[in-house]
Computed example of a mutant assay.
Amino acid sequence: MSATTIVEAPSQKMRKPLSEFWRRFKKQKVALIALLFIVAMVLAAALAPFLAPFDPSAPDYNAVLEGPTAAHLAGTDAYGRDIFSRIIWGARISLAVGFLSVTLGALVGVTLGIISGYYGRWVDSLIMRICDLLLAFPGILLAIAVIAILGPGITNVIYAVAVFSVPVFARLARGTTLQLKQAVYVDASRAIGVADRVIMLRHILPGTLPNVIVYFSMRIGTSILTAAALSFIGLGAQPPSPEWGAMLADGRTYMGVADHLTLFPGIAIFVTVLAFNLFGDGLRDALDPKLRG
Rank of each mutant, 00 (worst) to 15 (best):
G151K: 02
R81A: 12
V146G: 07
L209M: 15
L178P: 11
D60W: 07
D77Y: 09
L225R: 11
A195D: 12
I6G: 02
R86W: 12
A183D: 10
V198A: 15
A170R: 01
A173C: 11
A136C: 09
F276W: 12
R292Q: 15
I269V: 15
F169A: 03
L150H: 01
S125L: 11
T176C: 06
F50Q: 12
I158H: 03
A45C: 11
G90W: 11
K29H: 13
P68F: 10
L47I: 06
Y61H: 14
A195E: 13
V30C: 03
F276E: 11
S223T: 05
Y159T: 02
I6K: 05
E8L: 15
Y185K: 04
T69I: 10
G256A: 00
G280F: 00
R252T: 09
V273T: 01
P53M: 04
F25P: 06
T176W: 01
A249P: 01
Y215F: 12
A258P: 11
E8D: 13
I144F: 00
A58L: 13
L180A: 00
V64M: 01
Y159K: 01
P59K: 05
Q182N: 15
A286S: 10
R197G: 15
R292S: 10
A227P: 04
L287S: 10
F84V: 08
L65I: 11
D288I: 06
V7S: 10
A173Q: 09
D196I: 00
A268N: 14
M14S: 12
P152N: 03
Y61Q: 13
Q179Y: 01
V257E: 12
L201C: 05
L261I: 14
L135N: 07
M41R: 00
G80A: 12
H260R: 12
L248T: 08
V30M: 13
V97P: 13
Q238S: 04
G234M: 09
Y61K: 11
V30S: 13
G280C: 04
T4N: 11
A106F: 08
R129W: 05
P206H: 04
V146L: 06
S2V: 12
A188D: 03
L47N: 00
K29F: 08
R129C: 09
A170M: 00
D281A: 09
I149N: 03
A145P: 09
S19A: 05
S57Q: 15
I130H: 03
S19G: 03
M255C: 04
A52N: 08
V157C: 08
L235E: 00
S165I: 00
V271L: 14
L141S: 02
N211G: 07
L18M: 14
T4M: 09
G153V: 04
V214M: 04
V168I: 07
A188Y: 02
A227H: 02
A48V: 01
A78P: 01
P17K: 02
A70W: 14
T226C: 00
L51G: 06
P167Y: 06
T155Y: 02
T226A: 14
A227W: 06
A71V: 15
L263A: 14
D250K: 09
